[in-house]
Design a protein around this nucleic acid. Structure first.
Lengths: 191, 191
DNA sequence: TATAATCGACAATGTGGTTGTCTATATAGT
DNA sequence: ACTATATAGACAACCACATTGTCGATTATA
């Protein structure tokens, strides 16, 4: 059906594909006993994810335009978790909910592309403090601006009060813990 | 840019949101020129993702209780994309935005755990039609029920009107295409 | 009929996660 | 002070899941 060519994982995903609206699958094979006007239950999680995707994709498209083409969604998230005060691989792993080895690998990548640097801890010879470089901070500053602009665009679309209500509602149904998303193998499964 | 403003939603009375968690990094080191009470721009995407996570995690916890402990988030999504009419690996790959090889592997998994089965196409000897088994359909039926229950719980928390407003708002800022999430290597990057 | 396109399979590869093991360093208990 | 235990980070092996490239079989088309 969708004759559009695929875009592999690299590069910033488009999201503006405007493909087919209706997928071929019935809402629910045999649960037509719900209130008629309600949307299918699985629309809500999908919309939440799509909304997330839209924001992240547009962020990185704009970030690429502003001189940060190599930053991946994961990187920005990790740099947020590193913070301006810096941290260690083990601590970062705990914060993100991944092993310290995985955190270390991501730090390797960020170091290689120049967004973090490793230093030593004067008080603990074991620890190596990971700190954002100037470039790393710059990417976060620009991300903040871009997110603000995206939010403003949503405010134009939805109205400021509706957007605030949306944010408020999301806070009510989500855990207060910000990081610790456990993104790793969460979506996939045992093959 | 995939979000064009349509019509500003008729305002629902906003309720006061709770305090922001404030992770380790400053919102924006030099963007204090926004309205002061606004949340940091990156909270919105994170909340969207967390909300998605909450729904999917609870779905699968309940699904496991109801006799489907092996279904992973990806599986349910893929089965929705397969649909009751069945499809082929190549078509499924296009629909999901992944390669036909990746789609084929996921189909292998679903076949192994008994949720789909492969048949032949009488009209085209190349194609192998993938269809949901009875067990596969059962998992989708239960998923629909569980999603409905989860939605009802959110309606209790937020109020039915607020929830409808949330869904409506999400529709305004997301592309109409349901599937085609390009989940694959999207989050990660080049190491 | 010759040529092109498509399906499904196989192989090789890359990314990103895991566990396990190792050394060096810090810290707590005796 | 000395020893036991815990922790940081590095290295290796492995696994999960995606990618591209290729290939034979089959269908569609010029």
């Amino acid at each position: 059906m969708s004759t559009e060519p695929r875009h592999p994982g690299s590069g910033t995903a488009p999201t503006s594909g405007r493909a087919k609206p209706s997928p071929d699958v019935e809402t629910s094979p045999s649960t037509g006993d719900r209130a008629a006007a309600d949307p299918p239950g699985f629309e809500l999680p999908l919309r939440l994810f799509l909304a997330f995707r839209v924001l992240i994709d547009e962020l990185h498209a704009e970030l690429a335009r502003q001189g940060h083409p190599d930053v991946r969604p994961m990187h920005g998230f990790v740099m947020q978790a590193i913070g301006t005060r810096g941290t260690t691989a083990a601590e970062l792993g705990r914060r993100l909910g991944v092993s310290k080895q995985a955190a270390g690998k991501t730090i390797d990548t960020l170091e290689r592309i120049g967004y973090v640097e490793r230093g030593t801890d004067a008080n603990d010879a074991r620890r190596k403090i990971v700190r954002l470089t100037e470039r790393g901070v710059d990417s976060l500053v620009r991300s903040a601006h871009i997110f603000d602009n995206l939010r403003a665009r949503w405010a134009d679309t939805l109205g400021e009060d509706r957007l605030r209500a949306l944010e408020s509602d999301l806070r009510l149904v989500t855990p207060p813990d910000f990081f610790h998303l456990d993104v790793p193998g969460w979506f996939g499964g045992y093959q």
